[in-house]
């Protein structure tokens, strides 16, 4: 069981959280103009990173906030966690 730092509640047990998959996947703004392929890319294509992965977590049995994390998928170490929108380094995926 991992330990995860909620940006609001601090270090907590993984059992309080639920996982939300890859972070920074912006929903395409004009979805109806997209090709099937581009829409499929947004829906299904994920990086499956080996190494530092940006991902979303929900502090489900805590403050119920979604937040972002950078986690190494090899070592399971969290590099950092931060509120959604606070990262600045906008690495978008799917909308391109």
């Amino acid at each position: 069981m991992l330990q995860i730092t909620c940006p609001w509640c601090g270090l907590r047990a993984e059992s309080e959280f639920s996982y939300g998959g890859e972070a920074d996947i912006a929903r395409p703004s004009d979805s109806e103009a997209l090709s099937d392929e581009a829409w499929g890319d947004y829906l299904f294509m994920r990086k499956n990173t080996k190494g530092v992965h940006k991902e979303q977590w929900l502090h489900a049995s805590g403050c119920r906030r979604w937040f972002n994390a950078e986690r190494d998928t090899v070592t399971y170490q969290f590099i950092r966690t931060y509120p959604v929108g606070a990262s600045g380094s906008g690495d978008t995926h799917g909308a391109d």
């Binding site: 912006a26 979303q56 929900l58 119920r64 906030r65 979604w66 959604v84 929108g85």
Partner: peptide
């Protein structure tokens, strides 16, 4: 509830 909160918090804050 989680679905709604997720969209509100992450996509449409």
């Amino acid at each position: 509830m989680n679905w709604m909160e997720r969209w509100l918090q992450t996509e449409w804050p």
